Amino acid sequence: MVSTLKIEVEERDGESFLRDAYVTQPFRIMPVGQYKSDGASYLMIMSSSPGILSGDVYDIQVNVKEKARLQLQSQSYQRLFNMDGSASQIMNVKMEKGTSFSYVPHPVVPHEDSTFKSHNKIYIEDDCDLTISEIITCGRKHHGETFKYAHFQNLLEVFHHDRLVLKDNVLLRPDIMPLAAMGLLEGFTHQGTFVYLNTKDDDLEDRIEYFFKELEGLENVSFGISKLEANGFVIRILGHGGEQMFDFFRKVQDVLWEEKAVIQI
């Protein structure tokens, strides 16, 4: 089943709001920031389906109009059910000048024999800042399905003035890849990636140092933080729990988001 979600967020007099929305089953879009006072738009992607099924194709399109700020949220863990075939998701985000877009979704839980491919393409203009993350678990560990999924891939591409400035490709094939080996998961069961990029020429050195010290406080993880050639950084974490990573990524998101709120105000 092909499922579509299209949203457009606009700014007027310092307030960002949902200008237009179009959804098909099983999607719903819900405002969740009614009590926020920073002028940003907070929207949650909701679904009436318990997860992604074989044959599902998710098409998500987000347009953030000039000077608007959008924080997109997920409803819960994303389950990828047992599949005879495969499922896929495409997310296209267009960020006009002076916009902010942040999306830190819950972890993905691939069930046995699931095959899933995701492609995120983000087009960013000047004076923008982007936050996006992903957490992939080993599957239903307590059901004996550790690394029993068939194929998981998430490709992220970010374009600035139609020039590719960031490409990140996570590909996991437990049947042919020694996931416990050096250079892969090295005995860990969960992997998290957090990307921050801006086109405002902000100096990020202090923030990178701050988040590195915060990462040192996490237990039973291996991590790294790298500055991008474009103005941004990537945090990668290997661990044994999705909730731990998700909570940390939300904290990083909050710090970056609140900084921008202060600047906007």
Rank of each mutant, 00 (worst) to 15 (best):
L5T: 11
R12I: 11
S16H: 12
S16E: 11
S16M: 12
D20E: 15
F27Y: 15
R28K: 15
G33R: 08
Q34S: 13
K36C: 04
M44I: 08
I52R: 13
V57M: 13
D59V: 13
K67V: 00
A68M: 07
R69S: 14
R69H: 08
L80R: 02
S88V: 00
M91N: 01
V93M: 03
K97L: 05
G98T: 10
F101R: 09
H106K: 12
P107H: 06
V108H: 09
V108N: 10
D113M: 12
K121P: 01
I122Y: 04
I122D: 02
D127H: 09
C128K: 01
L130Q: 13
T131W: 01
I135M: 01
A150F: 04
H151M: 06
E157I: 02
F159G: 01
F159I: 01
R163K: 12
F188Y: 15
T189C: 03
Q191S: 09
Q191G: 10
Y196D: 01
D201L: 08
D203F: 02
E205R: 13
F212P: 00
G224L: 03
L228G: 03
A230G: 03
A230V: 05
G232L: 04
K251Q: 06
W257S: 10
E258A: 10
V262Y: 04
Q264F: 11
